[in-house]
Simulated scan of single mutants.
Amino acid sequence: MRLVLDTTTCSDMTFEEVVDFASENKFTSLEVSCCPRWKSHRKTTDACHIDVENINYAMSMEIKKYCKDKNIEISALSYQPSVVEVNEENCDEYIQHLYKMIDAAHLLGISKIITIITCNQTKKYYYTMEIDKKTWNPIYLYANDKKVELLLKTNEY
């Protein structure tokens, strides 16, 4: 059994502190929050444990080594606000950030990204998917080329 820690709950900790905590408490894996540093997206946290906007090869090697030394795997990168917001004026920024996450996942050798499909509470999931095909199809294709899988959550209850 794998025990996975979602780092969005650790917004006041650095990446290294989260990895240390996970290692000391017998977690095997992390779902690492990568919210943009330029904007707070969540009401509860704006955790950014890996800065995908500025990551490079050297940084990716340091991250991988630190995790390996602590026997921790990064199972997924996480970006919890929707890229298709109710407030569409920010949509392009969110989409560009998701593309950077895909690039970072590829660089880090991580095969999964978790995000939310919609924040629009006035629309049903199937309706939103039909509307958003023009947005999501290019993202899917880009992720597929980078061998990164998108795991989409819905925030509808």
Rank of each mutant, 00 (worst) to 15 (best):
K70R: 15
N71S: 14
N71D: 15
I72N: 11
I72F: 14
E73D: 14
I74W: 04
I74S: 04
S75Y: 10
S75W: 10
A76F: 05
A76N: 01
A76W: 00
L77D: 08
L77I: 03
L77C: 10
L77M: 06
L77T: 08
S78I: 00
S78F: 05
Y79Q: 04
Y79A: 02
Q80C: 01
Q80Y: 14
S82D: 04
S82W: 01
V83G: 01
V84Y: 12
V86E: 10
N87H: 05
N87G: 02
N87T: 05
E88R: 14
E89V: 12
E89Q: 00
E89Y: 09
E89S: 14
N90S: 07
N90P: 01
C91M: 15
C91I: 01
D92S: 15
E93Y: 14
Y94P: 01
Y94F: 08
Y94M: 14
I95L: 15
I95S: 11
I95W: 12
Q96S: 15
Q96L: 15
Q96H: 13
Q96D: 09
H97W: 10
H97T: 10
H97G: 10
L98E: 02
L98P: 06
Y99H: 15
Y99W: 09
K100D: 13
K100S: 14
K100H: 15
K100F: 03
M101E: 13
M101F: 00
M101P: 02
M101D: 07
I102H: 08
I102F: 06
I102Y: 04
A104F: 03
A104M: 05
A104T: 10
A104H: 05
A104C: 11
A105Q: 07
A105C: 03
A105S: 10
A105F: 06
H106R: 03
H106V: 00
L107K: 07
L108E: 09
L108G: 12
L108H: 04
L108M: 04
G109L: 00
G109S: 04
G109N: 11
G109T: 04
I110R: 04
I110Q: 11
S111A: 10
K112M: 13
I113W: 02
I113A: 12
I114R: 08
T115G: 01
T115C: 11
T115L: 05
T115P: 00
I116C: 02
T118P: 00
T118R: 10
T118K: 12
C119A: 13
C119H: 06
C119S: 15
N120C: 06
T122Y: 09
K123Y: 01
K123L: 11
K124Q: 09
K124P: 00
K124T: 07
Y125E: 07
Y126Q: 02
Y126P: 12
Y126N: 14
Y127I: 05
Y127H: 06
Y127V: 11
Y127Q: 15
Y127G: 05
T128A: 14
M129A: 12
M129D: 00
E130N: 04
E130D: 09
E130C: 02
I131R: 07
I131M: 02
I131P: 00
D132T: 05
K133A: 08
K133Q: 12
K133T: 07
K133F: 01
K133E: 14
K133Y: 05
K134H: 09
K134C: 06
K134V: 03
K134T: 10
K134F: 02
T135A: 06
W136Q: 08
W136D: 01
W136C: 05
W136M: 13
N137L: 11
N137P: 00
